[in-house]
Design a protein around this nucleic acid. Structure first.
Lengths: 189, 189
DNA sequence: ATCGATGGAGAACGCTCGTTCTCGACCTAG
DNA sequence: CTAGGTCGAGAACGAGCGTTCTCCATCGAT
């Protein structure tokens, strides 16, 4: 075999491609970013891109999946560094507040993808639902540990804060949600 | 002047066009529905469509604006038919539950539009924000009438229920939100 | 009856998209 | 050194988009 294509290089290119695609898709929307724009920004030849991901849809799903892994890992690391169960739940909303305040914050990537492709791409829809369910389950476990039967309420407050912050590009929603959760968990202590 | 084009006919065509466009945009997404599909489904010549709305963007904004008027009017009529302030706020979530259970429910049209066009169309973004702000303000007024300082919490619960029901096509979110609001407003009575 | 403006039907335009193909350069195995 | 496979660069393709234009039938005013 003549020209080499190491497996290590493949992994590197794959990650670089996902980095580029995630940044562009999140900033401008998925449908608004063509594959040629991804090629230009990533520096990878179109041919290689299509060998890494057979279709744009595959690329989109891979972007969402990796982002889900990282997003939830970051949240979990932050939240579980807190010991007290009640404070843990409140820490979720501190983490959300920091996320909303990041430069370039443009709402929830999964909600945005759902609005764009939820009705035309089954794999994307499945990925969105999978992410939302995982977030719900993770959050529910933390809330249950406090003993208060308010898991669904806390989850809806979190989702409401995420979508509201996204639409108005305003981190205030995280503060409001946090205050409501404090009330639900009981004011004392 | 030879051929007639009455103002009454213009209004009729306009409404029929908005009906068709709203139905198609909501069911399949805005970007997924071309103007030719709108023409075919509405039965109106393309020429007339473009005389009624100079661009697709104008049509989209008009669809969202009329839907906003109807959506909030329907909500208000339902809620204000209830006398007691506390029951009024709970009625919001009964109305949401009925909406979520409608056949063809595919989430919040404004959140979906935001995901599709929020980063590429300033007029659409403005329309989405206007709708969300109006809903927030209306809801806040109803909650304030109960005397409980939980307006922001109730609003976030409503938004969370809307987005969650949209993603999972599951009306259960309305029940969970309603239960949380009952708790926030005080269990007694 | 004739003229001229208008409206409808749909072709056409220019562009962009996702995806594939062409082709020349290069590298390695023999 | 040669041969053959692979790769990168970018052209090409077919489809679909939003929008505009062409053309003819139609109708009111004269």
């Amino acid at each position: 075999m003549p020209a080499p294509i190491t497996e290590a290089q493949t992994r590197l290119d794959r990650e670089a491609l996902l980095d580029t695609a995630e940044r562009l898709f999140y900033a401008h929307g998925i449908q608004a970013v063509g594959m040629d724009r991804v090629r230009e920004a990533s520096g990878l030849p179109l041919k290689r891109i299509y060998r890494l991901f057979a279709t744009k849809e595959d690329l989109v799903v891979a972007v969402l999946r990796r982002r889900d892994r990282r997003w939830r890992a970051s949240l979990t690391a932050y939240v579980e560094s807190v010991a007290d169960p009640r404070e843990r739940v409140l820490a979720v909303f501190d983490w959300l507040a920091a996320w909303f305040a990041e430069p370039g914050f443009r709402g929830c990537a999964w909600i945005n993808a759902h609005g764009e492709l939820g009705s035309s791409s089954e794999p994307v829809l499945a990925e969105v639902r999978s992410h939302k369910r995982a977030f719900h389950d993770q959050l529910t476990a933390w809330v249950r540990a406090t003993g208060a039967p308010v898991a669904e309420a806390v989850h809806l407050l979190a989702e409401g804060a995420i979508v509201t912050a996204g639409v108005h590009t305003d981190p205030a929603a995280a503060r409001h949600a946090r205050a409501a959760v404090e009330r639900l968990l009981g004011d004392r202590r």
